[in-house]
């Protein structure tokens, strides 16, 4: 085999210089597992150590406690932290509120993204489409904090939003509504882009066929377009939902007194100095997301990510 390929090569320096390299390549070709190991060892190490490892540490430390007198870690596995979370209504409320915010953000983003992505993929000229993609991607380059604080300014008492709505106090001010509004703004691109990609792949002939068979716009959208892009919408919702569920900075900036899971985690790491309890709280969104992913797995959405 190697003899044949040597003959195939142009005669000259390449053969002399490439001899050992070519022999190695040929040896690797015959030993596929060595190539695979070389290719995957670094990313696998990263995935196992940094990613799954930290998740394991999180789960293990959520079973520890802190001695309330000394503040020392007690490394004895117990479910006390979870018992507290389920027993105390305040934690339950925060968890429910966090999920509700994530759901609201996801729905708002989906409602805005669908017509927007449809326009980009099916109506706009290639030129307009390119500009729209840029317009959607540019905010992702700006700092998260800058965007959140600029919304703080906009939502301030007597600020631009109040002014647009007719005077001081007419806007939502800081609070839950402002949190949902700002999170919906922040994560909108993550919803538009998968839906745009899904619509882009949807052949125009399917919509033409529906119109040809007598379907008006609304019918074509509900019977043909929507069922075909459900996986893309779910793919987008995985982003908007999980990003909203874990957020705590936006809430601090525009949320007023509103608390979400992220804020409780933050407070327990900092002020309360109860790392195990923070870890236990942090597992809540992890399990909610695992539940969500399992639920949407069958829709084919995970192939869209």
């Amino acid at each position: 085999m190697s003899a044949v390929s040597t003959v195939d090569r142009p005669v000259g320096g390449a053969t002399a210089a490439g001899g050992p390299v070519r022999r190695l390549a040929s040896w690797l070709h015959r030993h596929g597992w060595v190539r695979l190991t070389a290719l995957l060892s670094a990313p696998m190490a990263w995935l196992v150590v940094a990613y799954l490892g930290s998740l394991a540490v999180l789960l293990i430390s959520s079973l520890w406690t802190v001695n309330s007198f000394t503040g020392q870690l007690v490394r004895e596995p117990t479910l006390d932290n979870f018992r507290t979370i389920f027993a105390e209504p305040v934690y339950r409320n925060v968890a429910v509120r966090s999920v509700a915010v994530a759901v609201a953000v996801t729905i708002i983003d989906a409602l805005i993204a669908l017509p927007m992505a449809f326009f980009m993929a099916k109506v706009a000229s290639p030129r307009v489409r390119a500009w729209l993609v840029i317009a959607i991607l540019t905010p992702l380059w700006a700092s998260y904090l800058v965007k959140a604080y600029s919304w703080r300014v906009m939502l301030a008492n007597g600020g631009p939003v109040d002014w647009l709505l007719g005077g001081a106090g007419n806007g939502p001010g800081y609070g839950l509504t402002a949190t949902i509004l700002v999170l919906a703004y922040l994560w909108l691109p993550y919803m538009i882009l998968p839906i745009y990609a899904g619509l882009d792949r949807l052949p125009n002939s399917l919509m033409e066929a529906s119109a040809d068979l007598g379907g008006r716009g609304g019918r074509t959208f509900s019977s043909i377009v929507l069922p075909m892009i459900v996986p893309s919408v779910i793919a987008g919702s995985i982003f908007t939902f999980s990003l909203s569920l874990g957020d705590y900075i936006t809430v601090q900036i525009v949320g007023g007194k509103t608390q979400l899971i992220g804020n409780l985690v933050y407070a327990n790491i900092g002020a309360a100095n109860n790392l195990p309890f923070a870890a236990a709280l942090a597992t809540i969104p992890v399990f909610i997301m695992i539940g969500y992913l399992v639920a949407v797995r069958r829709s084919g959405a995970l192939d869209e990510l």
Binding site: S205, A209, A211, L213
Partner: peptide, 29 residues
Amino acid sequence: APFERNVNTVFQDYALFPHMNVQANVEYG
């Protein structure tokens, strides 16, 4: 509009609705 004309088209790529079975495709119109 296409839905106001008494003509039907057979498309080059067939344009069958992939999420419907054959029966639903044929019955769509």
